[in-house]
Design a protein around this nucleic acid. Structure first.
Lengths: 156, 156
DNA sequence: TATTGTTATACTCTATAACTATA
DNA sequence: TATAGTTATAGAGTATAACAATA
């Protein structure tokens, strides 16, 4: 017995007739638009979007390892090194080698790190207000829900 | 009299409490997920997502110039050169210098170009079926609508 | 003076391979 | 052997500046 989809999504997907019919096209355009605005918004705080994401992870889960952040954010271990070095140099995080497994550096936010993160979230909220300017409150919630359904590997 | 939004979007945007509250975060994750799948899907046809987008523009508006494609897709004129060279080398497009303005090369699809584009749209439809596997038909339509509202500069 | 197509160049983001130290 | 952090490096994608030809 074949698994049933939520509603009958076409078994044989209907080929799009043009670029604009593809969700992926609009996804990319919207994401680029967002990234430009996010980058500009965070410039005032001296952070890049990726640094901000990494810092948020450290604040939300103090003691998290670099490898775990990479798994959460879907990035390569090699590419987080310079991000962490930058955040450390700016005094936004501390490293503490795990006592029982010396391969692992546990990462903790400093007070300054928490402050800058709060400021960045406010800057990003301002940017998102612009990003979502044509969507009402319920549409914003719905967009977030649909997007998370697209990429999140949760629930099977 | 201040312009009114669709519904009262907060005048003072509420800062998100974490990364996951930001639409931009989910936008980026979903877009990366899509791009990986699109790239893999098009690999079979020997095209990259950007080449496919450019070719679609030529098919949808035969005679379009490179500069116009760049304006439509939001890319730099410098960066379309190698894409067009590749498409031309593969026999998917023809260039014809405009008679009344010799700066402009009008671009036309070949039959082979139209064939490969049709094949690519089918491959992408298959990929999108996976991308949107957790969304029903009406949710897919709604996602596309909301995304286009985010990035499209249309209608003021 | 402005635009088209083009070259050269640099910078960011991402991906892979290999190393070391630990386990 | 497997994992964590790291280095080096290569590949995309994207950005700017400058040029010749044309308008």
């Amino acid at each position: 017995m074949p698994t049933k989809r939520k509603q009958d999504a076409p078994q044989n997907p209907t080929p799009a007739r043009s670029l604009g019919d593809l969700v992926g096209y609009h996804l990319r355009r919207a994401s680029v638009f967002d990234l430009q605005g996010s980058t500009a918004a965070l410039e005032e705080a001296g952070l890049r979007p990726i640094s901000m994401s990494v810092l948020c992870n450290i604040i939300e889960r103090p003691g998290i390892s670099a490898a775990d952040i990479c798994r959460v954010l879907g990035m390569q271990r090699a590419n987080i090194v310079s991000v962490l070095a930058d955040l450390e140099e700016k005094g936004f995080l501390l490293r503490d080698t795990d006592k029982s497994d010396q391969r692992i550096q546990r990462l903790y936010p400093t007070d300054g790190g928490r402050e800058i993160a709060t400021k960045c979230l406010a800057l990003l909220a301002e940017h998102e207000e612009h990003l979502l300017r044509r969507l009402d409150a319920s549409e914003r919630v719905e967009l977030l829900r649909l997007l998370s359904l697209v990429w999140q590997p949760l629930s099977t």
